[in-house]
C-alpha cells in the first residue's frame, strides 16, 4: 500500500502465510527495481523459502498481494523464473538444449531457440559446452547453464534460492565474480535468497533481513558501494562494517 508499483518490477505487499495455524511469515513487504539485485538474508527456517514459493506463485498467501510490473500475479505460477541449489538440468539433453528449453516451451522453433541460446554461451562463460551433457560439466559450470536457462525463461526477473550454496568455497567465489559480471551485462532483476552474509553483501544492491518466528523483514540495508566492486571489497573496512551491522540485526 505504501509502496507504489511504479518503477518497481516486483512488489510484494503485506504478505502473510501460515501452515496448520502456524504463522510462518508475517506481513512481508518487499520491492525490486529493474536490474536490481536484492538479497533476502535470514537463518534457516525463517520462512525464506515460503516467501520464495509465494513470489513464484506456487503458494497462495493467506493475505497480501504480489505484483509483477503492476500486474497482480498472486498465486499465479509461471510468471517469474527461478533457480535452485539443484541445477535441475535434464541429464539426457545437451547443455545447449537444456538452456534453449524455456524458449521452445514458449513456442519458439527449435532452430531459432538454439541460435538464441548459443549466442549467449560466450557471455555466460559456457563456450565449448554446447554439445556436452550436464554430467560432463563441473558443479560451477552446471550452475552457469542453469542461470542461462533461468535468464532465457525470465521476463526481466528471476528468483535465485541459494544457487551457489552447494559449491565449494573456491568455486563459489569464482561464481560470485562471474555472476556480478553477467548481471552487469544482462537485463535481469534478481531476488537472491541466502543465509550467507558475505555473499549477500558482495552481490546485493540492497539486503532485506528476515528474522523471528514468524519471519518478518526486520531491517533493510542498502550497500552503497558502486558496482563494479573491487576484488578486495570483501576484505575492506567498509565490508566489515556492513557485516557487523548485519550480524547485530540478525541476532
Amino acid at each position: 500500500m505504501s509502496i507504489s508499483t511504479e518503477n518497481n518490477i516486483l512488489v510484494a505487499e503485506n504478505v502473510s502465510k501460515s501452515f496448520d495455524n502456524n504463522l510462518i511469515i508475517d506481513n512481508i513487504n518487499i520491492h525490486l527495481k529493474n536490474r536490481e539485485i536484492v538479497s533476502l538474508l535470514g537463518q534457516s527456517g525463517v520462512g525464506k523459502s515460503t516467501l520464495f514459493n509465494i513470489l513464484s506463485g506456487i503458494y497462495l498467501p493467506d493475505s497480501g498481494k504480489v505484483y509483477l510490473k503492476g500486474e497482480d500475479i498472486t498465486g499465479k505460477p509461471g510468471k517469474i523464473s527461478y533457480m535452485l541449489q539443484k541445477d535441475l538440468l535434464l541429464p539426457y539433453k545437451t547443455v545447449l538444449d537444456n538452456t534453449a528449453l524455456p524458449l521452445i516451451i514458449k513456442g519458439m522453433k527449435k532452430k531459432d531457440a538454439r541460435a538464441k541460446a548459443s549466442a549467449l554461451f560466450a557471455q555466460f562463460g559456457l563456450e565449448g559446452c554446447e554439445k556436452k551433457y550436464p554430467a560432463q560439466l563441473s558443479g560451477g559450470m552446471r550452475q552457469r547453464a542453469a542461470l542461462l536457462r533461468t535468464y532465457l525463461s525470465s521476463d526481466g526477473i528471476a528468483l535465485l534460492d541459494e544457487p551457489f550454496s552447494a559449491l565449494d568455497t573456491l568455486t563459489k567465489s569464482a561464481m560470485h565474480k562471474w555472476y556480478l559480471d553477467i548481471m552487469a551485462k544482462i537485463d535481469l532483476a534478481t531476488v537472491f535468497i541466502t543465509h550467507d552474509i558475505d555473499e549477500a553483501i558482495l552481490l546485493s544492491d540492497r539486503i532485506y533481513i528476515m528474522t523471528g518466528k514468524p519471519g518478518e523483514i526486520t531491517a533493510e540495508i542498502v550497500i552503497n558501494r558502486k558496482k563494479p566492486r573491487p576484488d578486495n571489497f570483501n576484505l575492506s573496512e567498509e565490508f566489515l562494517e556492513y557485516k557487523r551491522t548485519i550480524v547485530e540485526k540478525l541476532l
Binding site: S56, G57, I58, P77, G78, I80, S81, Y82, L84, K86, L88, L90, L101, P102, I105, K106, S153
Partner: peptide
C-alpha cells in the same frame, strides 16, 4: 521423476504432454 524438475518446467509454462 524429479518433482522439482516437473515444477520447473511447469513454471516455464509447459503443458502436461510437454
Amino acid at each position: 521423476v524429479d518433482k522439482d524438475a516437473v515444477s520447473l518446467l511447469r513454471s516455464m509454462g509447459a503443458k502436461n504432454s510437454r
